[in-house]
Amino acid sequence: MQFFVKHLYLIAPILAIAAVVGGYFFLKSKIKPVPHVEIKHEEIVFDAEEYLRSLKAKNKPFNQQGVHLLLLKRTRQKEGVYLESLLPAMDSAGIEVVHCFHKVMGDDYVPVITSGNDYPYHAKNSKHYMNAALDFRIVNLPMNKRRELVEMAQLRLGYRFRVLWEKGEAEHLHVELLE
């Protein structure tokens, strides 16, 4: 009995440790694993002749959705890129940038869009969160072609857009709609 009285001060820490360990295992048993979902990407091939035939057959101009679909067909998108809420002006700007890529790299080149409104690490007031900005991959282009592309895109888009060559670890071409 004297042993228990002598070591009575150890009961509180032992009970606290037991409660923490018990709580940990209780919470761990409630956590469900995140299911693995495989996203199947369709390879969309743009055929200029088919596109021209469809224009002649329909004989009507592009609507907003048509321009958006054309942007999606003329580019590839990095996995996870969200482009569905883009402003219509950004769809048109994207088509212009694709044209610049073709002028600089040739008609067979397919540009890659690396960000729309999807990346949580843009600056707080980034135009990406307003669906008014796109990023294009340029890290795989030769240095002189990158410069030519940036200059040509800024000329083609004019005063309504800002074209930035963002250098660094994730080098890309940033295109945003100005106010």
Rank of each mutant, 00 (worst) to 15 (best):
P61N: 01
H174L: 03
L83R: 02
M143E: 15
P142S: 08
E49M: 13
G106F: 06
L164C: 06
I31C: 12
M90F: 05
M143V: 15
L70T: 02
F136D: 02
A57Q: 13
L52I: 13
F62N: 12
A170G: 14
E38R: 10
A93P: 06
I31T: 10
K40T: 11
L177G: 00
R162W: 03
R53S: 11
D47M: 01
E79F: 12
D107I: 03
V34I: 08
G94L: 07
A170Q: 15
K30Q: 04
A16P: 03
A93I: 03
E96F: 08
C100F: 02
F3D: 11
V104S: 00
L177A: 09
I14F: 00
K145D: 10
A12K: 01
R53V: 10
E171P: 00
K40N: 12
V175Y: 00
A133Q: 07
L69N: 15
L86E: 02
M143W: 12
M90E: 04
R53T: 12
E169V: 11
A57H: 12
K58Q: 11
L173H: 06
I95H: 08
I113A: 06
L10Q: 02
F46G: 14
N59L: 02
H122N: 07
H122M: 08
A48V: 14
V150I: 14
H122L: 06
E38A: 14
V37H: 14
P13C: 05
M130D: 10
K30Y: 07
E148R: 09
K103W: 12
E151S: 12
Q64D: 14
L69S: 14
V81Q: 09
L164W: 03
W165Y: 06
E42L: 15
E42S: 15
P142Q: 14
N125T: 05
Y82W: 13
T114P: 05
I17W: 01
P120S: 09
K124Q: 10
V20Q: 06
M105A: 05
K40G: 09
R146F: 07
G23I: 05
T75W: 02
T75R: 06
H68S: 11
H102F: 11
S92D: 07
R76W: 13
A89C: 10
E43F: 13
L70H: 02
V139H: 15
H122P: 09
V21A: 04
K127V: 03
G94K: 07
G94S: 04
F4V: 08
G66K: 01
S115N: 04
L15C: 02
R74L: 10
L173T: 05
L155N: 15
A48N: 12
R162M: 09
K40M: 04
A133T: 10
S115V: 01
